[in-house]
């Protein structure tokens, strides 16, 4: 409920035409301060971009902030040739493409049961799920390794997909629960009067109505799956099964001092996520909004 109100308000604020005033010097000053902060904030990224385009000689002899005389694309070629980025990228993509929709669907089903079907202990169950989103993954790392080993899924994408689904549930259930409860209960009645069961209510009414929340969670989950490191580190131990974060780390330890390719590698590894962010910006904010409001 609160989600809806808030989204409406945001829109209103963004589109209100402001009365024009004379140039406000304090505001200009603030803007300049803000711009400087932004530059400082962008510095790490700018520095990585600059380094990735410099030759070894330039890196060693010129200032950090000097522009490269000509773009050294060879760094990128070298990073691609010597690193495991393409294989790892494929693995990460495969894992995310399988994990995210399945995980989201499972979470949605659970959130549906918790929010629309009355049964005992549903509050307790919700709390148990919510608690899981707070506990650090590292607590379970040792035994999780054993479980996956017993299942024979070490070095197998499925070996991380399953735990990812498990660890992704709590947050998604929590958010979707909030969203589903905001859908008016009268809808349930009308579906039941028409003779529809829970499954129909879930698939044909609740899921389609929740598209904004689902889309936001999809994007957020895609990014966090792409970025996950700890579980992958334990389960995916050979080079062929590496995900992107593992590839970054092993490239870094292998080529400690070839700074140009190293930064080219880092940059290429974050590019997909940055592109996703730029394309789906509003979903990131929306996902956070929903989360923030429900608390």
């Amino acid at each position: 409920m609160s989600t809806l109100t808030i989204r409406r308000r945001t829109q209103r604020v963004d589109h209100t035409p402001r009365p024009r005033r004379n140039v406000d010097y304090i505001r200009v000053g603030l803007w300049i301060a803000l711009a400087i902060c932004m530059l400082v904030w962008a510095m790490p990224l700018i520095f990585v971009v600059l380094t990735s385009l410099k030759t070894e000689n330039q890196i060693f002899s010129t200032s950090s902030f000097s522009l490269p005389s000509s773009a050294e694309w060879a760094n990128y070629a070298k990073a691609l040739a010597t690193g495991n980025l393409l294989t790892a990228g494929g693995n990460s993509l495969l894992i995310a493409v399988i994990k995210v929709p399945i995980g989201l669907f499972i979470s949605a089903a659970a959130a549906f049961a918790l929010s629309r079907i009355k049964f005992k202990f549903s509050r307790g169950l919700l709390a148990a799920f919510a608690l899981g989103s707070m506990v650090p993954i590292q607590v379970a790392l040792g035994p999780l390794f054993r479980t996956i080993l017993d299942l024979g899924l070490l070095n197998n994408p499925l070996g991380v997909i399953l735990p990812y689904i498990g660890f992704g549930l709590p947050y998604q259930i929590f958010i979707l629960y909030g969203f589903f409860t905001s859908v008016p209960k009268e809808i349930d009645e009308s579906v039941r009067v028409d003779g529809g069961g829970n499954l129909r209510l879930f698939l044909q009414i609740i899921l389609p109505l929740s598209k904004p929340a689902l889309a936001a969670l999809f994007i957020l989950d895609f990014v966090s799956t792409w970025n996950e490191y700890a579980i992958a580190l334990v389960i995916l131990q050979n080079k062929a099964s590496q995900t992107v974060p593992l590839a970054i780390q092993s490239f870094q330890s292998q080529f400690t001092s070839s700074y140009g390719p190293l930064n080219a590698f880092t940059l290429m590894s974050i590019l997909p996520v940055v592109i996703i962010y730029l394309l789906f910006q509003r979903y990131f904010v929306q996902g956070m909004f929903t989360g923030a409001v429900k608390g």
């Binding site: 490191y229 970054i248 974050i270």
Partner: peptide
């Protein structure tokens, strides 16, 4: 920065 992999 919040969407980048911490390891990156």
């Amino acid at each position: 920065p919040g969407v980048l992999a911490p390891i990156a």
